[in-house]
């Protein structure tokens, strides 16, 4: 193990990790937003929009992110839509993640007892108020484990960003392997950095799930 080498290339990995995280978080934020909108549309059974959301979910869930990215990054410019690699990465991740987030929030919404909604209506609250003050907050609480699982899933998916020439962790590792033949060291750093990014989210998810199980059985 060449520790001097590892120390030398550490800044490269750090830079790559920051890029991975930044695009990942951008994508996740947009995915969450899209997911909430889609979930509410499905839950409220809004005509037309509901069908569109269902089609989107099927497309997004049944195609690989890598293929989505290839189309967005290499294909769309030929039709006149040119986006930077970074925006493509975030957009692809949001397109993929939106459907997974929608599923998480929809099942959260459906887990709220229907009578809660009626109870709010009978207090004179409108649909939007009911969603905002009564159903929404309860759904958010029950969706947290699924939401965190999606965050992990999406952060893992960022590993394909190197395919659209973003200098992320995978790109850096592959580059260094090609340059210096320090395969073991480069791969070890790759694993360590991914653990660094993913482990905290994963542990939080496990802790939340344990707590919710406990709280759930208590009431």
């Amino acid at each position: 193990m060449d520790f001097a080498y590892m120390k030398n290339v550490l800044p490269l990995y750090e830079k790559a990790a920051v890029l991975t995280l930044r695009i990942g978080l951008e994508g996740i934020i947009f995915a969450t937003f899209a997911g909430i909108v889609c979930a509410v549309i499905l839950y409220e059974k809004v005509p037309v929009l509901r069908q569109l959301v269902m089609v989107y979910i099927e497309i997004s869930r049944n195609t690989p992110l890598l293929v989505q990215l290839f189309f967005i990054y290499y294909g769309l410019p030929k039709a006149g839509i040119v986006l930077s690699a970074e925006i493509c990465g975030a957009a692809g991740l949001a397109f993929l993640g939106g459907s997974y987030m929608a599923e998480a929030f929809r099942s959260g919404l459906e887990n709220v007892a229907p009578l809660q909604r009626e109870s709010a209506y009978s207090l004179g609250m409108g649909k939007l108020q009911t969603m905002r003050y009564v159903v929404g907050p309860q759904a958010v609480a029950t969706s947290i484990p699924a939401f965190l699982a999606n965050v992990i899933f999406l952060l893992k998916e960022t590993s394909v960003f190197s395919a659209i020439s973003l200098m992320d962790l995978m790109f850096t590792a592959k580059d260094l392997i090609g340059l210096y033949y320090k395969t073991t060291e480069s791969l070890l750093l790759l694993v360590i950095f991914y653990l660094f990014i993913l482990l905290p989210v994963s542990l939080t998810g496990a802790a939340v799930e344990r707590r919710m199980k406990y709280a759930g059985s208590g009431s």
């Binding site: 992990i152 893992k156 998916e157 960022t158 590993s159 394909v160 995978m170 590792a173 592959k174 392997i177 033949y181 395969t183 073991t184 791969l187 790759l190 694993v191 991914y194 653990l195 993913l198 482990l199 994963s202």
Partner: peptide
Amino acid sequence: LEFIRIMPQLVLLFLVFFGSTRS
């Protein structure tokens, strides 16, 4: 189980593909 699950599949591919060749 946890290691396989937490690692992106592409990282696993790299580990096996590059790792096995060199080490």
